[in-house]
Design a protein around this nucleic acid. Structure first.
Lengths: 228, 228
DNA sequence: GCAAAAGTGTTTCATTTACACCCATGT
DNA sequence: ACATGGGTGTAAATGAAACACTTTTGC
């Protein structure tokens, strides 16, 4: 074992921020303004302050960028290859976040850097090992949605069943049967029919539903397991 | 966002080393000889050297302790609460490892510290936040075994179906039906019947089986999904 | 009235669960 | 001969998958 001495390292967090819009899963990237790799696209990130936790640092990065709060966020993996960053050794703890783009677009005041949503099906080259970080988060998300109702974090408060189905189809990368999907999701008793419907659409208006987190907590306590 | 400056942190890895023996899931703990908390039980761990990756550091800690190599190991989570360690800020990246205790007991030359297997059902108090680190790894393991054939990493090369079933029962924390278990596991075509059987047991001798990793790779390529 | 998406049940098939007795070995 | 764990199949219930037509709305 090493002596009890400490080593100097830089510690950063990088955030993979997922959104869902126009039928596409997207992530928020910033265009770097500083060297190294100025002008290239990168995951939003920053150094961890000496007196903040990792979770706090990740939240801070996200809030500074989007002005959003109460975002679903989870640590994914820590990247510590010696030469992953060209100017010295930097350890990066990655987080992924799920945001409702509809909220974001209203409030965004991205102070620092140019932040743009990119569809995951068409991503630019990323700096350093950010592509790998992204892939790891994406895989994590794909596994997560199968057994936890996190998909709702990506949709507006009120959504149609078709929107929900599209979301799952995009994340899981496969088509789902409409009737089976509705049967299953409604049978779980997790989403509630609202009194509102779409307006001004050139077809039969779809009913809006909303997720019921209280009900979910209760079901969990009773041993319920979400399974898509 | 912070300026591009770096911050000084200590970075360590802590290993949750699982073993299975006498029908019990166990973890390997060391008795600390240094302050702080000398004499208390702790997860094996150590500082990350400036020129080694995180994975390398974790492997090194494990090999120094057990002299084992080619161990199944996986990063779980990074703990970064500001005051988790009393003498200063230390970030800890946790890993879990699965070892075959039967191998270990032959080769062990634990050089540094007293290392003892403790059944998870009866653990001593642990230093710092090691209890939380352990719990997180245990939960991770519980989820992992359901969908990945990692249980075999905890058993000897050759094992009986009853041993395998006991292992799963202990990890999952519930009883399994003998006939259904055998039907399912044999139906996957992942384990091979050897020509050997138990000897000297006071009942009908059980057949030994072994896991076939080549076969598993092949099945994976064909889209097979392990599911217990 | 036509284009476009919403909404709705039944049948078939696959998977999971429940369950009980005979077999081989050592003492 | 008895105690101990090894080994085996079938039937019922549950869950998953396949599948087509009617409804509502805007143009």
């Amino acid at each position: 074992m090493s002596s009890s001495g400490s080593y100097i390292n830089s510690l950063s967090v990088d955030c993979v921020i997922f959104g869902f819009d126009a039928g596409d899963l997207k992530i928020l990237l910033i265009k770097r303004k500083e060297e190294p790799s100025a002008g290239m696209w990168a995951l939003p990130g920053g150094f961890v302050d000496p007196l903040e936790s990792l979770d706090h640092a990740a939240m801070r990065v996200l809030e500074e960028l989007t002005t959003l709060q109460n975002i679903y966020m989870e640590q994914v993996h820590t990247f510590g290859e010696v030469h992953r960053y060209p100017l010295g050794r930097v350890i990066s703890v990655s987080y992924y976040a799920l945001v409702k783009i509809s909220d974001y677009e209203v409030k965004a005041t991205s102070k620092i850097e140019e932040a743009v949503w990119h569809p995951i099906s068409d991503l630019p080259a990323l700096v350093f090992d950010h592509r790998i970080i992204l892939e790891k988060s994406l895989n994590h998300l794909k596994e997560k949605v199968k057994f936890h109702p996190v998909g709702f974090e990506l949709l507006p408060e009120k959504f149609t069943l078709t929107e929900l189905q599209n979301l799952y189809e995009v994340i899981l990368g496969k088509e789902l049967d409409k009737r089976n999907f509705r049967k299953k999701i409604l049978g779980m008793d997790l989403i509630i029919k609202t009194s509102e419907s779409q307006k001004g659409v050139a077809h039969r208006a779809a009913r809006f539903f909303r997720f019921d987190p209280e009900r979910y907590k209760l079901l969990i306590e009773q041993g319920f397991n979400f399974k898509l």
